[in-house]
Amino acid sequence: MVFDLKSLELFQRVSALGAIGRAGAEFGLSPTAATQRIQALEEELGVKLFNRTTRAVALTPDGELLLDHARTILEAAEDARTALSASHENVSGLLRVTASASFGRTQIVPHVGEFLDLHPNISLSLYLSDTIVDIVDQGFDLAIRVGTLTSSSLLARKLADNPRVLVASPSYLKRAGDVMTPKDLKSHSCIVLGSTGNWTLQKDAEQDIKVRVSGAFTTNYGEAVTDAVLQGVGIGLKSLWDVSQNLASGRMTRVLPDYRILPDWKIWAVRPPHRVVPARVKAFTHFLEGKFKGNDLI
């Protein structure tokens, strides 16, 4: 069996957008042509990949299985193209990247010097903001995003997992008492990031436990959660990379360490839906992926 890479790319975009016509338009295909290409892939595999309605399409169990393999195949193909076509000498130009302020400052900026040494013909412009910017409208080559992604026309590559933990200061736990179960969080002061205080936890693949938390302090800024936890204001939900030093020094303590936080967050490299990826974008994406794979906190 020979996989057509373009058909796999189309299949991947249909699964992300939930619409064959919209996905086909990205490839310059009419809705009919895109549908025929998906049908040909289904006939080649001998399975049904999508359940179709007049409004949307959704992956079947066989489609979910193929999606995992398709991502691996397409990433391997992109890696091969990068290795064959990109050398340090021909990777050049201005690279415009955006990332969240905390993540960019602690996880990207420390590696900037090494990247520029490897690629002296690249100029890197890094825009740090906790606001999600429109990378197409504002002309960015790449966005490094942390969390879960919504469906869009943008293309995303997973760089690493992003484990999250509940933390508190020793002084707060001494004052308010230990947290023994997720339901205990309801009686504690929890620091809410954003407008919702819904936290979901899971232990050993058991049923999810959803808890609505509240407290005296809410904020839209991630670093403010860290500062408030250190002041003993309450319990915060943080990415492990963001609090590792405070945990190691004893200034913070993990709360409910046997539970994982859901949904699982990832670190993504997100780019505009161009079919040709500039070598400088490939180089930076692969550089960061290598750095994050060697980081035990990500």
Rank of each mutant, 00 (worst) to 15 (best):
residue 225 V to Q: 12
residue 169 S to Q: 06
residue 173 L to G: 06
residue 234 G to D: 07
residue 241 W to P: 10
residue 234 G to C: 04
residue 198 N to K: 15
residue 160 A to Y: 10
residue 168 A to Q: 00
residue 234 G to M: 01
residue 184 D to Y: 00
residue 237 L to M: 14
residue 215 G to L: 07
residue 163 P to E: 01
residue 171 S to C: 00
residue 235 I to K: 02
residue 216 A to H: 13
residue 194 G to E: 02
residue 239 S to C: 03
residue 238 K to H: 11
residue 189 S to D: 12
residue 203 K to R: 09
residue 171 S to G: 00
residue 229 V to P: 00
residue 159 L to D: 11
residue 206 E to K: 03
residue 197 G to A: 11
residue 162 N to K: 07
residue 181 T to S: 00
residue 212 R to N: 14
residue 199 W to A: 12
residue 175 R to K: 15
residue 236 G to D: 08
residue 193 L to G: 09
residue 164 R to N: 09
residue 203 K to M: 07
residue 223 E to N: 13
residue 173 L to Q: 03
residue 173 L to N: 02
residue 162 N to C: 15
residue 221 Y to L: 00
residue 173 L to E: 11
residue 173 L to D: 08
residue 209 I to E: 13
residue 169 S to V: 11
residue 175 R to G: 10
residue 163 P to Y: 06
residue 160 A to F: 11
residue 162 N to D: 13
residue 204 D to L: 09
residue 217 F to N: 01
residue 178 D to Q: 13
residue 221 Y to R: 03
residue 229 V to M: 03
residue 187 S to K: 14
residue 183 K to D: 09
residue 193 L to H: 13
residue 201 L to C: 05
residue 241 W to R: 11
residue 165 V to E: 01
residue 234 G to Q: 05
residue 190 C to H: 07
residue 183 K to I: 13
residue 203 K to P: 07
residue 168 A to R: 04
residue 187 S to Q: 14
residue 173 L to K: 02
residue 170 P to I: 15
residue 167 V to K: 00
residue 225 V to Y: 10
residue 177 G to Q: 05
residue 238 K to M: 13
residue 182 P to D: 04
residue 196 T to E: 05
residue 201 L to G: 05
residue 163 P to V: 02
residue 186 K to T: 14
residue 163 P to A: 07
residue 171 S to T: 11
residue 232 G to F: 04
residue 166 L to C: 05
residue 201 L to F: 15
residue 211 V to R: 03
residue 212 R to K: 15
residue 214 S to T: 08
residue 162 N to T: 10
residue 197 G to N: 04
residue 191 I to R: 03
residue 227 D to Y: 07
residue 205 A to C: 02
residue 197 G to L: 06
residue 168 A to K: 05
residue 204 D to I: 08
residue 162 N to Q: 10
residue 187 S to T: 15
residue 190 C to Q: 04
residue 239 S to W: 06
residue 163 P to F: 04
residue 182 P to K: 02
residue 179 V to P: 01
residue 168 A to L: 04
residue 172 Y to N: 09
residue 225 V to W: 05
residue 186 K to P: 11
residue 204 D to Q: 11
residue 176 A to H: 07
residue 242 D to Y: 10
residue 187 S to D: 15
residue 230 L to D: 09
residue 236 G to F: 05
residue 159 L to Q: 08
residue 211 V to T: 11
residue 166 L to E: 01
residue 217 F to K: 12
residue 200 T to E: 06
residue 233 V to M: 09
residue 225 V to A: 03
residue 172 Y to Q: 04
residue 176 A to F: 09
residue 237 L to F: 08
residue 222 G to D: 09
residue 185 L to N: 03
residue 183 K to G: 02
residue 177 G to L: 03
residue 196 T to C: 02
residue 212 R to S: 12
residue 196 T to K: 09
residue 193 L to Y: 15
residue 207 Q to G: 10
residue 208 D to I: 12
residue 226 T to N: 06
residue 159 L to E: 08
residue 190 C to M: 09
residue 226 T to P: 00
